[in-house]
Simulated assay, not measured.
Amino acid sequence: MTDRTYCRTMSRYNAWQNKGLWDVLKQMDEADLAADRGLPQGSVLGTLNHLLWLDQMWLSRLFKVKTPDVAHDKTAQMTPTTAAWWAERFRADGALRMWADTLASVDLHGDLAFWSLTSQSDVIAPRDICVMHMFNQQADLRAQVRLVLVGMGQALPPTALFLMPRD
């Protein structure tokens, strides 16, 4: 179901979308981005921090990189500013692309065992389903942030996958 082409495409898409958000965020007032907007982690920055943490957690499971140093209940405060967020986001997106670029389709077979903070239990799940979940989670949380940013009067770049620049 999931193969390395999908992973490479989606990792590129993730990086492209995050760069588009950064281009908008860097021109905005930090206080506006830190204000509670009713998002899953309160603010725009808090929700983007949480997504960054989630991506780092998935990378630690899939690519054996270091787990994030931030506790699950502190993810919204992972970085204090959008500039700090972008620096960490850029590194995580690079790691995600490196994982996808070095992936063999066989690496997506089998199960992934991990401790789930959501269910507070050990989980064994198909690796390809976990990968799809990671990419869907990215799109879902970014969509929620984008909705708030549009409500704040921001013009946002397109999200259509077919408009993604080719490398």
Rank of each mutant, 00 (worst) to 15 (best):
M1W: 07
R4G: 09
C7F: 04
T9D: 01
Y13P: 00
N14L: 11
W16P: 04
Q17M: 07
K19N: 13
L21F: 07
W22G: 14
V24D: 01
L25I: 07
Q27Y: 00
A31G: 05
A34L: 02
A34Y: 10
R37T: 06
G38Y: 09
S43P: 01
H50I: 04
L51E: 11
W53E: 04
L54W: 11
L54C: 11
Q56N: 06
Q56G: 15
L62W: 03
L62E: 04
F63Y: 14
F63C: 10
F63R: 05
K64H: 15
P68L: 09
D69T: 12
V70H: 13
A71Q: 08
A71G: 15
D73C: 02
K74G: 04
K74N: 15
T75V: 15
Q77W: 07
Q77H: 14
M78C: 10
M78T: 14
T79G: 06
T79W: 06
T79F: 12
P80A: 05
T81D: 09
T82Y: 06
A83V: 13
A84V: 08
W85C: 02
R89E: 03
A92W: 03
A92G: 07
A95I: 00
L96Y: 11
W99R: 08
W99K: 04
S105Q: 12
S105L: 09
H109R: 01
L117N: 00
S119K: 15
V123H: 01
I124D: 03
A125N: 02
I129F: 06
C130L: 10
F135T: 10
F135Y: 14
Q137E: 15
Q138K: 00
A143T: 03
A143F: 04
V145W: 10
V148C: 12
V148G: 00
V150Y: 15
V150I: 15
G151H: 02
M152R: 06
M152F: 10
G153L: 12
G153M: 12
Q154I: 03
L161D: 01
F162L: 15
P165G: 04
R166M: 13
R166E: 14
